[in-house]
């Protein structure tokens, strides 16, 4: 039953998900290889969660091919789910049980023995730093703790692939870093990760390879570095103006020859160039004086903006 080496763990071709008239996932192709951390980057409503649910065998495929562990989700849902770990977008913890019981009962759903689970629950709670809360109810835990518990729970069956749907959405910055740290450790241990996110920093931190999704379609694929090189410049100059009067209608006369692309946004103007300092110097010499100038590295946000004309977080 195991996939042979070199064969992808998850394989999708022309995968479609429809809800009535709405096409949530529109003929996407991708492969997930063993040991990699693969991400779906895109805004809300891009079709990421629908894709995850199809892989998790809780949403029937409308059209196209989907193989998970070389099995068919429609036929072998039980077998597939036994080998997956799932961290859903909204925590689905059992509020009527304690922290530790959540892991044990969840493990029982996999048919694991209680004696094995007791030890495993302690290991996992230790891993996500929740040992002190083991006997507490789930309800009063903070968002970050609940998320860590959900991650611990998803690992109870020693999954071959861990599916993470928006793993840090809704968490405060500090809690996000704790979660990232734990996921990074898993990655180092060789766990195959498949995650969705609309945070470009999350994608950059965790993903070896990612696809950019928009409106149900995959618009680009590669490593974070590759995507930035391909679809953006090395640096970006951000200009802000005190008011609309000081902001030129047409930038081309100011920026011609200085930068490779201009992206005017409502609150600021982005200038794409390989040398930000040179560009801002050039602008200054031509007499354009914005309220502030910021030179920064290109990010996946810029890639997304370039590919779709929209921002990731709206």
């Amino acid at each position: 039953m195991t996939t042979q080496d070199g064969q992808p763990l998850i394989h999708a071709r022309g995968l479609v998900k429809r809800f009535g008239e709405l096409v949530a996932v529109d003929a996407i192709d991708f492969d997930l290889q063993r040991g990699e951390a693969f991400g779906f980057l895109g805004p809300n409503g891009a079709g990421k969660t629908s894709t995850m649910r199809m892989i998790g065998c809780v949403s029937p495929v409308s059209e196209g091919t989907l193989r998970v562990f070389d099995l068919d989700p429609a036929e072998d849902g039980v077998e597939i789910r036994a080998r997956l770990g799932v961290v859903p977008q909204e925590d689905s913890l059992d509020l009527e049980l304690t922290v530790r019981e959540n892991i044990i009962v969840y493990g029982r759903y996999f048919g694991l023995a209680r004696s094995v689970l007791k030890q495993r629950a302690d290991e996992l709670l230790d891993f996500v730093e929740l040992t002190e809360r083991a006997k507490d109810r789930v309800e009063p835990l903070s968002g970050g703790m609940k998320r860590r518990l959900t991650i611990a729970r998803s690992l109870v069956n020693e999954p071959e692939v861990l599916l993470l749907d928006e793993p840090t959405t809704g968490l405060d910055p500090q809690a996000r870093h704790v979660v990232w740290d734990r996921l990074y450790r898993l990655k180092r241990q060789g766990v195959t990760l498949l995650l969705t996110t609309h945070y470009m920093d999350e994608a950059e931190q965790l993903c070896d390879r990612l696809v950019v999704m928009d409106k149900g379609k995959i618009v680009a694929e590669g490593s974070p570095r590759e995507l930035i090189e391909r679809y953006s410049t090395r640096e970006v100059v951000e200009l802000r103006f005190a008011d609309d009067d000081g902001r030129p209608e047409d930038f081309s006369e100011w920026t011609d020859g200085l930068v490779s692309r201009v992206e005017p946004l409502p609150d600021r103007v982005l200038l794409y160039t390989d040398d930000g300092d040179a560009a801002s110097h050039g602008l200054h010499e031509r007499g354009l004086v914005p309220e502030s100038i910021l030179v920064r590295r290109s990010t996946l946000e810029d890639v997304f903006l370039h590919l779709t004309g929209r921002s990731l977080i709206e």
């Binding site: 039953m1 195991t2 063993r34 040991g35 039980v78 077998e79 036994a82 080998r83 759903y109 996999f110 048919g111 694991l112 290991e123 996992l124 230790d126 891993f127 690992l155 069956n157 020693e158 999954p159 071959e160 861990l162 898993l186 241990q189 060789g190 766990v191 195959t192």
Partner: peptide, 20 residues
């Protein structure tokens, strides 16, 4: 901390027992 994930081991799923 021991490894929390072993990516080659399969979870046994006893199908014979009613999951209910």
């Amino acid at each position: 901390m021991s490894e929390v994930a072993a990516h080659t081991r399969l979870t046994p799923w006893p199908r014979s027992r009613p999951a209910g």
